[in-house]
């Protein structure tokens, strides 16, 4: 089972890096150089392939069951996270329908969804999942909301994909924290925020659409300053709020006339203090 080894030649130092490469024991610069070499050396590629399967054995012997929360988080994130296109050299036109088909396939069919984990959505909102200081629950909420948006034009889809990327970025921030505010009627304002990024992903649920052409508007409320609009909710889609600064402040939602207002005209339906998501002092 020994691999045939090339006889050493002077100056072919790179060949001797197959094992260190397979073990990830090269620094970045050396790894890049070796990979460059690998692309032109079929012999080395075969060698690395075999050695990589050896490291798989080393890796598998460390296997332990992954925490359940990890599964929930990863599978939720996968529902919003974009994928690299299947074939980069393919013309864009032939890629688009696949992506659109994919989007339209959401939400999952009943049978497929029933197989999913215990955080099964009951309607568009995941109120079964308590908000905690972990991003997992919030990611699920955001994912469920995304899944609800099924039929979209190509432009909308592109915009949604960009937004999904931004949202995934906030959710993945090391300091991302989640909080929720609820009113007596069961309406909920969900917030996942990263203080270091100054951004928050905000979702609103349980309120339905406001009557007529009225809209739900999100505000940043700071002591001693007029409320600042962070945008309008579009159905169940999450809002991405940027430019948030540390300090006492809260997010609030009001019902406003179509197109939104420059100052809130209604009383807040629900509020969340940014302090609860790491924007203290």
């Amino acid at each position: 089972m020994r691999l045939p080894r090339r006889p050493p030649r002077p100056g072919d130092d790179l060949h001797s890096l197959a094992a260190p490469y397979a073990l990830d024991a090269l620094d970045h610069a050396e790894r890049d150089r070796y990979e460059h070499h690998l692309a032109a050396c079929a012999e080395c590629a075969a060698e690395v392939r075999t050695l990589a399967e050896d490291t798989v054995r080393l890796a598998r012997s460390t296997a332990v069951p992954a925490p359940a929360a990890l599964r929930a988080r990863v599978l939720a994130a996968v529902r919003t996270a974009p994928q690299e296109p299947a074939a980069p050299r393919e013309p864009a036109s032939s890629r688009e329908p696949a992506a659109r088909r994919r989007a339209r396939r959401l939400p999952r069919t009943g049978a497929a969804r029933a197989r999913r984990d215990r955080f099964r959505p009951s309607g568009p909102w995941l109120l079964l999942v308590p908000f905690a200081t972990t991003t997992a629950a919030a990611a699920l909420v955001v994912a469920a909301l995304f899944a609800a948006e099924a039929h979209r034009t190509r432009e909308e889809l592109d915009a949604a994909r960009d937004r999904a990327r931004e949202i995934a970025h906030v959710l993945a921030a090391p300091d991302a924290r989640a909080a929720g505010g609820a009113d007596e009627t069961g309406g909920v304002l969900g917030v996942v925020a990263s203080a270091s990024e100054g951004r928050a992903v905000v979702t609103l649920g349980g309120y339905g659409r406001p009557p007529g052409d009225r809209v739900h508007q999100l505000w940043l409320v700071r002591p001693g300053a007029p409320p600042h609009s962070l945008g309008l909710f579009d159905g169940d889609a999450p809002l991405l709020a940027s430019g948030l600064e540390p300090g006492p402040a809260s997010l609030a939602v009001t019902v406003e006339p179509g197109g939104g207002s420059s100052r809130p005209t209604g009383t807040p339906l629900v509020q969340v203090a940014l302090e609860s998501v790491g924007f203290g002092g």
Partner: peptide, 16 residues
């Protein structure tokens, strides 16, 4: 857990 999460998401996004 963070490393595993990043890797598994990369598995999804870079599967191609």
């Amino acid at each position: 857990e963070e490393v595993a999460q990043e890797a598994l998401l990369e598995l999804w996004s870079s599967a191609a």
